[in-house]
Simulated assay, not measured.
Amino acid sequence: MNRSRLALTGAFAALAAVLAGGCGDPGGLRGAGATPTAQGPTHLWPDLPPPSAPAEDYGAIESVRVTGVKVPGGDLRKVDPADVVRADFEQNPGTYDPSDASYRETVERLDDCADDDSGARERCPVLKAYYRDLTGDRKDDLIVGVSTPDDNLDIRVYAEEERRLTQIMEMSDAVLGVELAGRDLIIRAVSSLPGYEYHTVWSWDSHQKTMLPKRDEIVRSGNAPRRKTPRPAPSTSAGR
């Protein structure tokens, strides 16, 4: 018997003596009962053949250049958000089809953003812009929301790359609220299921060079209104 095993035997002997001397002590060791058997994951339908094509992409899968808008000194704070949105909408319809009435009306209302008339400016659908470094390059990115005639909110995010404007996110939905948490953009949207809402976390993906919906969940909501129409599918930038 080697030294380590002798030491272990001595330790067990000492423990047995303590237990014998403390018989009836309510603080002594007691059995916890039967331990449930651990169950590993069960793989369902292991013989499924691989799919022939990927499913429809959820959200943007690539960044999109926006031309015609200069970024002085590479600072997006020096660019008029309405100018950015107008150029982007004309070049990248995103969720909308160019023939869609809501899209055409939104583009027309964007012209009001540049009008000196106060009444026209009030019709401008571009909401207050926000700035946050979402890509991790230590430069603020531009976050804009556009109110559309179909009661949705079109959210677009822009980054500056070599003094060129790049759209790194675009989605449209019946939005209940938007939050910034660190470098994540969290969007709450109406669910078609009464009493619930969608929470989608958009995060920068350094491989795709775009914001991707990294986490999507449906949660209870006591104030989510009933929706009569299905939730619109988020934008897919493929093929732009």
Rank of each mutant, 00 (worst) to 15 (best):
N2K: 06
N2L: 05
N2F: 06
R3M: 13
S4G: 06
S4Q: 13
A7G: 11
G10E: 08
A11T: 07
A11K: 00
F12D: 12
F12Q: 11
A13R: 01
L15R: 04
A16E: 00
A16S: 09
L19F: 02
G21F: 00
G21P: 00
G22K: 07
G22S: 12
C23A: 15
C23R: 13
D25Q: 04
G27N: 09
L29T: 15
G31T: 05
G31M: 03
A38D: 09
A38Q: 10
Q39P: 01
T42L: 14
T42D: 14
L44T: 15
L48D: 14
P50S: 14
P51L: 08
P54F: 02
A55I: 15
E56M: 07
E56H: 03
E56R: 08
G59V: 13
I61T: 08
S63Q: 10
V64S: 05
V66L: 06
V66H: 00
V69D: 01
V71G: 01
G73Q: 04
G74M: 10
D80P: 04
P81W: 01
A82S: 10
A82N: 01
V84C: 01
D88W: 00
Q91A: 15
G94D: 08
D97T: 01
A101S: 11
A101L: 14
S102H: 10
S102F: 11
Y103K: 01
Y103T: 02
Y103P: 03
Y103M: 09
E105P: 05
T106S: 14
V107K: 03
R109Q: 12
L110W: 05
D111K: 04
D115S: 13
D115W: 01
A120L: 03
A120Q: 02
P125G: 02
V126K: 07
K128T: 01
A129N: 08
R132G: 05
D133Q: 09
T135Y: 03
G136T: 08
D137K: 08
R138Q: 11
R138I: 04
R138C: 02
K139M: 11
K139L: 12
D141K: 06
L142Q: 03
I143W: 09
G145E: 10
V146G: 09
S147Y: 09
S147V: 02
S147I: 01
T148Q: 10
D151W: 12
N152S: 12
D154H: 04
I155T: 14
R156Q: 14
R156H: 06
V157M: 13
V157E: 12
Y158Q: 05
A159G: 10
R163L: 07
L165D: 04
I168D: 04
A181E: 14
G182P: 07
L185F: 11
R188V: 15
R188S: 13
A189N: 04
S192R: 09
L193H: 06
P194S: 14
Y196T: 10
V201K: 06
T210Y: 03
L212R: 14
K214V: 15
E217R: 13
I218Y: 00
G222Y: 02
P225D: 13
R231W: 01
R231K: 03
A233W: 03
P234A: 09
P234G: 06
P234T: 10
S235R: 02
S237V: 10
S237H: 02
A238D: 14
A238M: 13
A238H: 08
G239K: 04
G239A: 14
R240Y: 11
